[in-house]
Simulated assay, not measured.
Amino acid sequence: MVLQNYAFRGNFELKTLLILSAIKADHLRVMGYINRLDNFDGQAVGKAAVKAHLYEEAFASFKKFNLNVEAVNVLLDNLQNIDRAMEFAFRVEEDSVWSQVAKAKLRKGLVSDAIDLFIRANDGTHYLEVIKVAEDANKYHDLVKYLLMVRKKTKKPKVDSELIYAYAKIGQLGEIEKFLLMPNVSNLPNVGDRLYDEALYEAAKIIFAFIPDWAKLAVTLTKLQQFQDAVDAARKANSLKTWKDVCFACIDAGESSLAQICGLNVIVQVTLFLGYIYIYFFSTVILSPCLEFSIY
């Protein structure tokens, strides 16, 4: 009646009901109805077709009404055909569709392809997942490209910090130095500690010098066998622990003259420390009781 009677051809509800009924009772007619009819609820029909495992019919319904994200998700999630999804994405050229394909690529571990598609989609919303998967796969060159895109869209400490780390992993120390001179929201102390812990000492040196954190810079310089610079940094830090750390490093390396300088400063620091203890002891244990006694 709906197909043959002109009075019913424009009836949105009846045409939708016809297809939904066919999905439940007559699967073979569903695709024909979707192709022949217009002006029905493509969203409802597509969802019902997915539930009935009529995935080609669902794809056809979604595509007919330009519900392209839903359509590509049928290809990716139900038909599991990423090649068809790519072809469809090229055809519709929508950022949201490219994003769905990118996520599917990422789930499959195709990190480089996924990142290229996220960049094509101009989609930086999934940066946490991308960072984790890219680092697990050691895809730091690709990660740098992605993070440079993301930081144009959002200012997040995680993004800027991971960009510095990625630069360090691929040995682009010059890019780190340039980046530090630009406005950024990276967590430099955390990045520096991470680089040091992973023995990326040249990159850690740049970070600690920029902050500056003289104590950590001094220890980092000893790892790089740059002992004179380490002593200079220890002098600026001027703490007992730093002098001791640099002193022992110099002794281990046979740098006796530098070790002597550090040792003398250790003595000075210890002497000062003992002096403070003596002052505290004198003022609290001896002087205070005497004052109290004199008052009484």
Rank of each mutant, 00 (worst) to 15 (best):
N5Q: 11
F8S: 15
R9C: 07
G10S: 08
E13A: 12
L18T: 00
L18S: 03
S21D: 14
N35S: 15
D38A: 07
D41R: 07
G42A: 04
A44P: 08
A44I: 12
G46S: 04
L67T: 06
L67N: 05
N68R: 06
A71K: 01
L76C: 00
N78Q: 06
N78E: 06
L79S: 01
A89H: 04
V97E: 02
V101W: 14
A102L: 05
K103R: 13
A104M: 12
A104W: 15
K105M: 13
R107W: 15
D113K: 13
R120W: 11
G124N: 03
H126G: 05
H126K: 06
Y127D: 00
K139N: 11
D142M: 10
D142Y: 14
M149C: 11
T154P: 07
P157L: 05
D160F: 00
I164E: 00
Y167Q: 06
A168F: 03
A168P: 05
I170C: 07
G171H: 04
G174H: 07
N184S: 15
S186G: 15
N187Y: 03
L188V: 10
V191W: 06
G192V: 14
G192I: 14
L195N: 05
E198M: 14
I207M: 08
A209R: 09
I211M: 13
A215V: 08
K216E: 14
L217A: 11
K223P: 00
Q225S: 15
Q226N: 10
Q226H: 11
F227Y: 12
D229W: 05
A230C: 02
A233K: 03
A249V: 11
D252P: 08
D252A: 14
E255A: 05
S256L: 05
L264V: 00
I267C: 03
V268T: 08
Q269K: 09
T271E: 12
L274Y: 15
Y276H: 09
Y278G: 11
I286K: 10
L287E: 12
Y296V: 09
